[in-house]
Design a protein around this nucleic acid. Structure first.
Length: 558
RNA sequence: UGCGGAUUGGUGUAACGGUAGCACGACUGACUCUGGAUCAGUUUGUUGAGGUUCGAAUCCUUAAUCCGCAGCCA
């Protein structure tokens, strides 16, 4: 008996609508504006829009909300499509564009004029703002508000025909300049922009505003539930107003949910752009960016992201989710699917002095203890090996289970070795460790029941392949990057150690064929993924997605 | 001092008048050829004040705090 997962408020609404028969099939839409790259905040909307449709056997359209030619571009539509597909959501052949409906939208505007519900205004932008009033004071009516229907029709057509310059005139809905909801103070619904559009070219020089376009686009596509974020709640009455005045049958309904915030990062297009353009990161797909392309390059999986969104739930409460939960989700997934490999990131050489100099042995090592079906691989062993600098200490604290002078440790899947000596340079840095091995411990078994607490990873020196490894950490070192003293800036909180590049890391030879975006767990270190931009077959680059939980680090820091 | 929305452990989210639960985190312990994983357990919460009720996170009143809205952006 699977336990019942409680429903979120949107699912309750949908189920109620299905039950009462208000709708017979669910139709949603995911409406990104093609003016930037998708980030994990958009993923929440994506999961809700596609997820609700998926769950209730309905459909979700991808619709580009492209009503502002100044800001939008095809390069974004292609990137967005790529990201949605990567996330695994299905929009079939239903890729629509708000601009596909410009003709229909124009007709609706004409209809509004004919009903005496829209007028052409000659006020300029500044004047419109002045006339709008303030939050506490009502606005006042434009002197052009009461033009005749005929005159409005004529003017609007001439706007369309390009007889006026950009900004010279607008079409406004005629509602109520004294409304307590500012959105009702005769909102602009069409503006003149003599700009080519990325899809309609020069056909139009007037473009509809979001508030007018969105409900009608939804209606045209037969959307049943128009799901959006909470800042549109104030616009909902206006959304409904257009549908009502234009007498749209079975009108779509809008519901709002809180947008996603995550600690230690920023999720605003403006700020992300600032990071890219200021060179604080390498680009929109920098592995530290919360963009989908960045997360992908970092090694996050679509499954882990979807699970994350699932775990955080949906509500109308503003909230900030801990970045740690995202990390938990990716560890959880990668633990199950990522093959294990051995890699030494900060190598120090160990010479096993009683091991034959020319001997090479191969050990069978399991690829994933969580999944025996992943089988085993051969890992070569020889006299000279590399181990992690951190895995040897001359004068260790209590509870340090790794290698130390006179101490014994297990080399994972190989032998027990005992440290017999070491060499240091002038700075006291260990340059070489001498050891002996116990031939009876072959395979890592303790033949006499001898207890060895520590097990460390290693790579055979003569078989190792070199690679660059990029250690990524949180982009900001504070929970809320915007938390800065007077005159400060979110960029002041950038984590200077969000990227540490390690060259000459030593990897086990089976990694030679690793492909871009292939993911591994480097034993005892974390999850790593082949970089999809800079890695080359003869010069591998790995990105650290996330470290393993590190209990020792916690103990050591106490 | 306009209108709209919100407030449950450290964080996120359930409970729809009847035992405040789940997840993440934190902390114990067990186990372990990854100080990973796994397993067992502990910890912390209904914004305040009144009221209705046998019984309130839930209903009512009131207060506080936070968020959004004054683009020819979406």
């Amino acid at each position: 008996m699977a336990e019942e997962k409680s429903k979120n408020f949107i699912e309750e609404i949908v189920e109620e609508d299905l039950r009462t028969g208000r709708v017979k099939e669910i139709q949603t839409r995911f409406p990104p504006e093609p003016n930037g790259y998708l980030h994990i905040g958009h993923t929440k909307a994506m999961c809700i829009d596609f997820g609700i449709a998926e769950k209730y056997g309905g459909k979700c359209n991808l619709r580009f909300d492209d009503t502002n030619p100044e800001k939008e571009d095809v390069k974004y539509v292609n990137a967005i499509i790529k990201d949605i597909k990567w996330m695994g959501f299905d929009f079939g052949d239903r890729v629509y564009y708000g601009s596909d409906y410009f003709d229909k939208l124009y007709d609706y505007a004409v209809e509004l004029i004919k009903k005496g519900l829209a007028y052409v205004d000659d006020l300029d932008a500044d004047q419109i703002r002045e006339y709008r009033g303030t939050l506490t004071e009502p606005g006042k009516e434009s002197p052009w508000r009461n033009r005749s229907i005929e005159e409005n029709l004529d003017l609007f057509e001439r706007m369309k025909n390009g007889e006026f310059e950009s900004g010279e005139k607008v079409l406004r809905a005629k509602i109520d300049m004294a409304s307590p909801n500012i959105n009702f103070r005769d909102p602009v619904i069409y503006r003149i922009k003599k700009e080519p559009h990325h899809r309609t070219g020069d056909k139009w020089c007037i473009y509809p505003m979001y508030d007018f376009a969105h409900p009608l686009q939804d209606a045209i596509e037969g959307i049943t539930h128009s799901l959006c974020s909470i800042e549109f709640a104030n616009n909902r009455p206006l959304y409904e107003w257009f549908l009502e005045k234009l007498e749209i049958p079975n009108p779509p309904r809008q519901y709002e949910f809180a947008r996603l915030n995550i600690t230690h990062t920023v999720l605003s297009k403006r700020k992300l752009r600032e990071l890219v353009e200021g060179g604080y990161v390498s680009g929109w797909n920098d592995p530290r960016m919360p963009t989908l392309s960045g997360l992908r390059r970092r090694g996050f999986t679509p499954e882990s992201i979807r699970n994350f969104i699932d775990l955080i739930g949906i509500s109308r409460t503003n909230s900030v989710v801990d970045w740690g939960l995202l990390e938990h989700c990716v560890r959880d997934h990668l633990n199950k699917v990522a093959d294990r490999r051995m890699a030494v990131l900060r190598p120090v050489k160990v010479v096993i002095e009683n091991y034959p100099e020319d001997l090479v042995e191969e050990f069978d090592v399991e690829n994933n203890p969580e999944d025996p079906s992943k089988g085993t691989r051969k890992v070569p062993f020889s006299r000279d090996i590399y181990i992690e600098e951190d895995d040897f200490m001359i004068d260790p604290p209590r509870k340090y289970f790794r290698l130390k002078p006179g101490g014994e440790v297990r080399l994972k899947n190989a032998y027990f070795i005992k440290c017999t000596g070491y060499e240091t340079d002038e700075n006291g840095k260990v340059t070489l460790i001498r050891a002996t091995y116990d031939p009876a411990s072959r395979g890592g078994e303790s033949p006499d029941g001898r207890k060895v607490r520590g097990t460390i990873h290693w790579v055979s020196a003569k078989h190792a392949i070199d690679a660059e490894v990029r250690l990524y950490d949180m982009l900001f070192n504070v929970e809320n990057p915007d938390d800065v003293p007077e005159g400060g800036d979110f960029k002041d909180n950038l984590n200077p150690e969000s990227l540490i590049v390690l060259k000459n890391c030593k990897l086990e030879p089976s990694l030679k064929e690793a492909q871009p975006e292939e993911k591994f767990q480097f034993l005892r270190l974390g999850y790593f993924c082949v970089d999809n931009v800079d890695s080359r077959p003869d010069a591998l680059v790995f990105n650290r997605t996330v470290g393993l939980k590190d209990t020792w680090a916690k103990i050591a820091s106490k």
